[in-house]
């Protein structure tokens, strides 16, 4: 790490002001940022420590408004929270599948949602890749077993978060503050594929921060599951992950939200699959078609073609588990 100044945040207003200054970055859990600083990918002159904003560490729940997670709530707190476990099991599953106990005690939900990609070219100082302002994506013609199969354009990195797909399946929103904005957007809207003018994976601009994540109360008869395929038994970013949340009336699917991780630069909402499911009675054949639809248009690279059948299998399995668990009730 190059040297930097350090400031403790006092309140949201001053923090936004501080973060609007050049070469300033926010640090919360630090597990993503320090990795970048140690690799000398970036060298801000000043870090603003958000951990002193104690208001952002609260978890609140009411059956009427749902779940409110301050941006500084750690993944461990989410994973262990009895209400999350009971009412939002997908979220608890996603949190507990992320990283390790230690990282989950450090990492915050805000940081998790805003983390930078794990692409091994992006993370290596020897590659001035497109996402870092360079001319080419080295993965496109390089080593790409972890890379995107869906929707990639100039950059083939994938969004690494486990919680983002789960929260999108739960229809979560996030509160954003900044020098020019304050408001609530859907989590899905937070994410953007990097473009020529905006080589980032979220829409957040300088000085803009997530302060809270809001999850609406679960729908009636809603069930869901988070499934994650890793290269080993734990401590891996998802090769592919699937969060599925379904609601049923009798045998009929009344609502379905499916989001995939590890397949695209953003958490990938499988809207076509959802459309196929809603209003139908569940069958293996329907699950098969929904799974197929989830990866429609996939454009695998040389080494990541396996992600297509893997994503299909996980979608199908997630649907089956959601349905079966419901029928067990």
């Amino acid at each position: 790490m190059r040297s930097f100044e350090h400031v403790n945040a006092l309140n949201i207003q001053t923090t936004v002001a501080l973060l609007s200054e050049p070469s300033t970055e926010a640090i919360a859990g630090g597990t993503d940022l320090l990795g970048e600083l140690k690799a000398r990918l970036r060298s801000p002159q000043r870090l603003v420590n958000l951990k002193t904003l104690s208001k952002l560490r609260e978890i609140r729940y009411s059956p009427r408004v749902g779940l409110r997670l301050g941006a500084l709530v750690t993944l461990a707190e989410i994973e262990r929270h009895p209400v999350v476990q009971e009412r939002f099991p997908i979220l608890a599953q996603a949190a507990s599948s992320a990283a390790t106990p230690q990282l989950r005690h450090m990492g915050t939900i805000g940081g998790n949602l805003c983390q930078k990609p794990r692409c091994w070219y992006y993370r290596n100082k020897l590659f001035h890749c497109w996402l870092k302002g360079g001319d080419i994506c080295f993965a496109e013609d390089g080593e790409n077993k972890y890379h995107a199969i869906l929707g990639a354009d100039r950059c083939h990195a994938v969004h690494p978060s486990d919680l983002a797909p789960a929260l999108i399946a739960l229809d979560a929103t996030v509160c954003v503050v900044g020098p020019e904005v304050e408001g609530e957007i859907s989590l899905e809207e937070l994410y953007t594929k990097p473009t020529e003018r905006h080589r980032r994976m979220t829409i957040l601009g300088p000085g803009e921060l997530i302060t809270e994540i809001r999850v609406p109360p679960p729908k009636k008869n809603a069930r869901g599951v988070y499934l994650k395929a890793m290269e080993r038994g734990s401590w891996s970013f998802a090769l592919v992950s699937v969060a599925a949340q379904m609601s049923l009336e009798g045998e009929r699917i009344t609502d379905a939200r499916i989001a995939l991780g590890g397949v695209a630069a953003i958490p990938w909402r499988a809207r076509e699959s959802e459309r196929l499911l809603v209003g139908q009675e569940f069958s293996e054949e329907l699950a098969e078609r929904a799974a197929e639809a989830a990866v429609a248009g996939a454009q695998p690279l040389r080494d990541n073609g396996y992600k297509v059948p893997l994503a299909k299998s996980l979608v199908k399995r997630a649907l089956e588990i959601s349905i079966r668990e419901r029928s067990d009730m």
């Binding site: 091994w120 070219y121 290596n124 020897l126 590659f127 080295f138 013609d141 390089g142 080593e143």
Partner: peptide, 8 residues
């Protein structure tokens, strides 16, 4: 990496 010889 096949193009640059870097261990990724």
């Amino acid at each position: 990496d096949r193009n640059t010889g870097v261990v990724v």
